[in-house]
């Protein structure tokens, strides 16, 4: 497969995944900002800025951190390269460049997403409804994933699409989990903590999984275990790494030795990891290290497959 084609496929699914994760994160922040807390609700609405590392660029353009402005910044703001609008436009451009390599149904799901998004943008987030918008983004992502999974032949095109998904998802899950460290003022009261963990689980679609797997009340250690180590949770770091480890060796040819090694090493660390080690290391330190490793892997994939000279 052409390296440029592989790159477009990879970024197509990566940006779509990023749009979905952003919608998930905002959905939770939006809901939390509606709940009257004892503590300052600003923290909840600052969280997405911190998670995505875009606090500085937001503050450069805005005087104050306000719910409606943060929401606009992340959803329909053309000027923010991390906005859902920007992600879906980039995804659509990538799809356009490789439309000969994806099925008609995949292309239509991407293209009609873009056409609808332009209409939504005319209405504005308030006109369309914030919760409705987040549901719409998630549904469009489900549709694209379903079209991909249900119609794509299992070749390298499919593998590069999936690579983009899992690199982005691993990065996103780690960042969302790390947010507790980033925004948590000294331990809040029990109710606030419950809402926050609950929200975090919902943002990665893992609330039901927690209930299914654990019988104990929601707490930090179990949430960490669930989202880092559990193989049956599709957004856990371990699941993402397992997928990456299966995908990379399946790509045709002998390129990508270093990518395969990095992925295998990181998968082994999760597969044979345990919670005590994470707690001893410190969750924030552990996740910081993971983010460094996943980004190193992403860079290596780019060098070995996507920009081959």
């Amino acid at each position: 497969m052409l390296s440029r084609t592989a790159a477009d496929l990879y970024w197509l699914s990566r940006y779509f995944e990023r749009a979905e994760n952003t919608a998930r994160m905002l959905d939770v922040a939006w809901n939390l900002s509606l709940i009257p807390f004892a503590v300052d609700a600003r923290e909840e609405i600052t969280a997405p800025l911190v998670i995505t590392g875009s606090l500085a660029s937001y503050q450069a353009a805005h005087d104050d951190i306000r719910v409606d402005e943060v929401m606009h910044f992340f959803t329909l703001d053309d000027g923010n390269p991390g906005s859902i609008f920007h992600c879906l436009r980039t995804a659509r451009e990538s799809a356009h460049a490789v439309r000969g390599k994806i099925t008609a149904e995949m292309w239509e799901s991407v293209n009609s997403t873009w056409l609808e998004l332009r209409e939504i943008r005319e209405l504005g987030l308030e006109g369309y409804g914030a919760s409705e918008f987040f549901d719409w983004v998630k549904n469009r992502s489900h549709l694209f994933r379903g079209a991909t999974y249900g119609t794509s032949i299992r070749n390298d095109a499919f593998r590069f699409l999936r690579l983009g998904t899992f690199i982005e998802r691993a990065d996103s899950t780690a960042r969302i989990l790390d947010v507790k460290h980033q925004i948590d003022s000294a331990a809040g009261d029990g109710a606030v903590d419950f809402y926050r963990w609950h929200a975090l689980l919902r943002s990665v679609g893992a609330y039901e999984a927690y209930r299914e797997i654990y019988s104990e009340p929601i707490n930090a250690e179990r949430v960490s275990e669930l989202l880092i180590l559990r193989p049956e949770v599709p957004r856990s770091l371990r699941s993402c790494m397992q997928m990456l480890c299966e995908l990379l060796p399946a790509i045709e040819g002998h390129a990508g030795q270093q990518s395969k090694r990095l992925a295998a090493v990181q998968f082994a660390r999760l597969q044979y990891g345990d919670l005590d080690h994470i707690v001893d290391t410190g969750l924030h330190e552990y996740l910081t290290d993971f983010l460094r490793r996943i980004n190193e892997l992403a860079d290596t994939i780019r060098e070995e497959y996507l920009e081959v000279v």
């Binding site: 052409l2 390296s3 592989a6 045709e252 040819g253 390129a255 990508g256 996507l306 081959v308």
Partner: peptide, 19 residues
């Protein structure tokens, strides 16, 4: 596209994920 192709040793090649 043009950037996907290059000339080497008297032949044209395309850049692919497998070399």
């Amino acid at each position: 596209e043009g950037a996907d192709l290059f000339v080497k040793d008297g032949f044209v090649f395309m850049r692919t994920t497998a070399g």
